[in-house]
């Protein structure tokens, strides 16, 4: 299997790892957002969503492990690429023309990704840990909702949440079309559409996720 190891460690192999893990995360975010939107339905709607997840708990646990591995591969590979690519130009240009020939989104993947990572750690330590390791099971649904409301009342948490998901949108705007290019699916007829679709997807994700803390910060969960 050393051919597979070598292939995945080649420059194109690393692109493929980024793209495959990225696509998984793109799909995960869609499901995550749909779930989050039940918060707008109030306590009962969200409670129903939580109960549904509780029913398939073993499946959720497997998905969590797989997702964790995907995140680790995506992040490890991204940081590794960033370091290697920095080393490919030991002395940088004095005048940087990069603004004239690339998009802001494509050249800030490491920065937006890093902030999203910091957010992810905070997000898991506030919501995921609290949901999984606190309180009596029968009181949990109520707790979940109130834990979320409590955090969204905190202007720093809500503010950072909003900034992070907007930057996530930046990250996705490049990542979406970039994955298609990496898979070799760049066709003159369809690629312009894919690029637009990626922007629409990124906007929906950024606005969708950001709207929730904004709404509950100002409405206080009432």
């Amino acid at each position: 299997m050393s051919w597979l190891y070598n292939s995945l460690n080649s420059s194109i192999g690393k692109k493929i790892i980024m793209a495959v893990t990225g696509v998984c995360l793109v799909l995960f975010l869609i499901i995550h957002l749909i779930g989050n939107l039940t918060l707008y339905g109030g306590f009962n709607a969200f409670n129903g969503y939580v109960r549904t997840l509780e029913l398939v708990k073993p499946v959720i646990r497997v998905v969590e492990v797989v997702l964790g591995l995907i995140f680790i591969f995506h992040i490890f590979n991204g940081v590794r690429l960033w370091i290697e690519n920095k080393n490919a130009r030991p002395e940088n240009y004095t005048v940087k023309g990069i603004r004239k020939n690339t998009t802001l989104f494509s050249r800030t993947m490491i920065q937006t990704g890093s902030i999203v990572f910091i957010f992810l750690v905070l997000h898991l330590s506030t919501f995921w840990v609290a949901f999984n390791f606190s309180g009596e099971p029968e009181h949990k649904p109520y707790q979940y909702y109130s834990i979320i409301m409590d955090w969204f009342k905190n202007p720093f948490y809500a503010g950072f949440y909003v900034i992070a998901v907007i930057l996530l949108g930046f990250h996705l705007n490049h990542g979406f079309q970039s994955a298609f290019q990496t898979f070799g699916w760049n066709h003159k007829k369809y690629f312009p559409f894919i690029q637009k679709l990626g922007t629409v997807y990124a906007l929906i994700m950024a606005i969708g996720f950001a709207s929730i803390p904004i709404y509950f910060y100002f409405n206080g969960g009432n």
Partner: peptide, 13 residues
């Protein structure tokens, strides 16, 4: 050489 990250600067220049 570094790895491609699909910024497309190459095509522009």
């Amino acid at each position: 050489f570094g790895s491609c990250t699909n910024t497309y600067a190459c095509e522009a220049e």
